[in-house]
Design a protein around this nucleic acid. Sequence first.
DNA 1: TCCTTATTAATAATGATTATCATTACTGAT
DNA 2: ATCAGTAATGATAATCATTATTAATAAGGA
Lengths: 123, 123
Amino acid sequence: MKRFSKRRQLILDNLAGRSDHPTAEMVFSSVRDQIPNISLGTVYRNLKELAEQGTILSFSQNGKEHFDGNSKPHIHICCVNCGRIEDRPLPDSLRFVNEDSFLVKNVIVQGICSDCAKKSEVS
Amino acid sequence: MKRFSKRRQLILDNLAGRSDHPTAEMVFSSVRDQIPNISLGTVYRNLKELAEQGTILSFSQNGKEHFDGNSKPHIHICCVNCGRIEDRPLPDSLRFVNEDSFLVKNVIVQGICSDCAKKSEVS
DNA sequence: TCCTTATTAATAATGATTATCATTACTGAT
DNA sequence: ATCAGTAATGATAATCATTATTAATAAGGA
């Protein structure tokens, strides 16, 4: 029978309490403050399980998996230059997926943020 | 000075001539038919370079980087269950990014395709 | 308490990607 | 055409993130 262990709860709480989109390593170093002997493998295992059951969202960016405690489908805006990730609401316009009967779980928009665009302008 | 080598051209042509969204390994095994002694590292290096300069698109799915010879911003629908990836046009509605002055390069929509949804229905 | 089984820590193993480096192949000038 | 400089390559080692293994521990239920 599935148990809800102390560490799984801690990991879930940690995700819920932050607005960035941490990697497993980031969650690990954070929960370590509360349970110093927690293992990195435990963090990976639980994050994977939580993502598979839909309790949290996950997506990979820059070769690393990022996690989001907010499992409600929404948009992740990711700057491929500076790596910044921000949330945006899911617009109705993405109902196009209904035509495909495609059940949307998560949307990732890759591009260049305004700050990086400014910096790369030729002067 | 930047050169446009025979292998880079071959890799680019290979991408242009296929509608799937191959990984580096897939491109490698394909271009090998034409240049048998081409190295996997060469494929990785060129794909990375082409993606960085915006000639092709790239996004990671299931822990692997996928490439798309069509660099025009569009949507990639990815079923997280079966791994199928399909193209869709980018709707005007994604102009929301203009409010952020965010320059969209690529959009990835993760979810469950209709086939997988049917299969997982409890009967 | 005892038994069964989920969970864990520690660590080894895997798999994808990147770096290294000696060699090869362009390109432009002499 | 020869030469010098340098980009690109093949082969392979190294790296990094993630997953698997395994023996030990902990949590429920009988």
